[in-house]
Amino acid sequence: MKRAKNKEDNKVEYGTISLPLPLIEKIKKRIEGTGMNSVSAYISFVMREILSSGNTGKEELEEVRKRLKALGY
């Protein structure tokens, strides 16, 4: 991923990623009339949903179990 240079400290940095063109077309059709104004906005939304969906990885689960064990469970 290529990172854009950032002039203001508080400004969110953006990068570019590659997607197959047919997929981009499908997404464009999907977001028609939804108020989502770009493919990038849609991908960002979907990724945020996935990352905050509560899915816990194996290592993370192991870490939680260890801590609970230390607390007597």
């Binding site: 905050s52 509560g54 816990t56 689960l61 801590r67």
Partner: peptide, 24 residues
């Protein structure tokens, strides 16, 4: 979150409790 709130949690329990948080 759906209502437009920024949702943040300071905790380690994780599991399903992470659901709905922008930051955990």
């Amino acid at each position: 979150k759906e209502k437009g709130y920024e949702t943040m949690a300071v905790d380690w329990i994780g599991l399903w409790f992470k659901k709905g948080f922008d930051y955990y």
